[in-house]
Write a protein that binds this DNA or RNA. Structure first.
Length: 108
DNA sequence: CGGCCGGCGCGTCACTAGCA
DNA sequence: TGCTAGTGACGCGCCGGCCG
């Protein structure tokens, strides 16, 4: 691992999202119908939209990090549970064999 | 040594469940 | 019903190991 975390996709300053989904996200020409109460110049509206988008992206970025962290933890937890159950299973099998030996009629 | 491949982490988008 | 947090999916870049 040791991934140089910071130099990946976005931090490389390559807005990949623009390439992938030009139509979704925020249709660029469209200046989101502003909140009816506050009237601003088109430029202000655009700035507001940009600001909102950046905030959303930032929050989602953090959410994704947290989500991945939890998922890793969950997987680790499952793996250790598997290990415990395997040991337990092995012991039970051994015990079963022992009991079989004890209970089986002598062949001699 | 250079190319390829698999694994990993990241950012973003799209979708959804739950809440006010 | 609109908003937000959570998450699956996708694509990207980086790294380490393997092979010719």
């Amino acid at each position: 691992m040791a991934v140089t975390g910071e130099d990946t996709a976005a931090t490389g300053d390559m807005p990949t999202y623009q390439i992938r989904t030009p139509t979704t996200a925020l249709p660029q020409g469209v200046v989101m119908a502003a909140s009816p109460g506050s009237l601003h110049s088109p430029q202000q509206l655009a700035e507001e939209a940009t600001r909102k988008r950046e905030l959303r992206l930032m929050k989602n970025r953090e959410a994704a990090k947290e989500c991945r962290r939890r998922k890793k933890e969950y997987v680790k937890c499952l793996e250790s549970r598997v290990a415990v159950l395997e040991v337990q299973n092995k012991k039970l099998i051994e015990e079963l064999e022992t009991l079989k030996d004890i209970c089986s009629p002598k062949t001699d």
